[in-house]
């Protein structure tokens, strides 16, 4: 019981962050060794990336549609509905695209990775790999981390494209904003470097790294019981969400 005196939320969180950082170093060190398991990385890319496409596309479409609808009604107060395209594009590129994609990615792919690794550990598959002289860091952790890192920007681009499409669908096709006005405003305001590279690519890369790291770490350190895996999965969502939103603020401050 004495060991639990300082076992409060803060010190536990700090310990988790510290272990997570050390784990990141281990995973990074294992990435060169995982080159021979490139096929496994491709397979993970399929699971975390391609399998997340449906939810990402659906949500992107609806986020764009909601934005189009809301902005149209707010902007029509000022007679500025022509700016709908601009505001839809900018809000999706700079914030909603990376953040919502990352949150969905954490919920869809992050939890799956955590549960999978947690169960692999619980059923001794990780140990079996070690005993077959296959480094689990290089074979299990690194490919999933890399897959998350690669998949996030791609998913985010798909999300943004569908979001723009959704905004266009509602704004232009349903509410009657002029097609050319919609696009001309957007193309006039959106900058490739500032909004697409800084907003979409860098942010989603950073979020992908964070979500993938947290998911792999939680799975890898989950207690090998069903309860432990369940808690680890929950922690993946909670920790990822907090990390995404906190990191979003920092990145926005730096990149803008």
């Amino acid at each position: 019981m004495n060991a639990r005196v300082d076992d409060n939320v803060v010190s536990r969180s700090l310990a988790q962050i510290g272990e997570c950082g050390l784990f990141l170093l281990k995973v990074l060190a294992a990435i060169p060794r995982s080159g021979r398991y490139a096929r496994e990385t491709v397979r993970q890319l399929w699971f975390v990336g391609a399998m997340s496409l449906t939810i990402i596309m659906t949500c992107g479409l609806f986020v764009g549609m909601v934005l189009g609808l809301q902005l149209y009604h707010v902007l029509s107060i000022f007679g500025g509905t022509a700016a709908t395209g601009t505001v839809v594009a900018l809000s999706i590129y700079r914030e909603l695209g990376p953040v919502v994609t990352a949150l969905l990615f954490a919920g869809r792919a992050g939890t799956a990775v955590t549960a999978e690794i947690g169960l692999m550990r619980a059923t001794d598959q990780i140990a079996a790999m070690e005993l077959m002289a296959v480094d689990p860091l290089a074979y299990v952790a690194a490919p999933r981390f890399l897959a998350g890192l690669i998949a996030m920007p791609l998913l985010c681009c798909v999300f943004c494209a569908l979001g723009i499409f959704g905004g266009h669908l509602v704004g232009v096709s349903w509410l009657g904003i002029d097609n050319g006005t919609f696009w001309s405003n957007m193309t006039d305001t959106v900058e490739v470097w500032q909004d697409i590279v800084n907003g979409v690519i860098w942010k989603s890369l950073a979020f992908g790294a964070v979500v993938a790291l947290i998911a792999v770490f939680q799975g890898y350190t989950a207690p090998p019981t069903s309860e432990g895996v369940a808690y680890a999965t929950t922690r993946t969502v909670v920790a990822s969400s907090i990390a995404i939103l906190a990191l979003d603020f920092v990145l926005t401050a730096f990149l803008m």
């Binding site: 594009a89 590129y93 920007p153 791609l154 681009c157 798909v158 943004c160 494209a161 723009i164 696009w183 957007m186 193309t187 006039d188 305001t189 959106v190 900058e191 490739v192 909004d195 697409i196 979409v200 690519i201």
Partner: peptide, 11 residues
């Protein structure tokens, strides 16, 4: 999608 974003919706 990236190509679309970069070429069709930007400057």
């Amino acid at each position: 999608a990236l190509g679309y974003l970069a070429t069709q919706t930007s400057s």
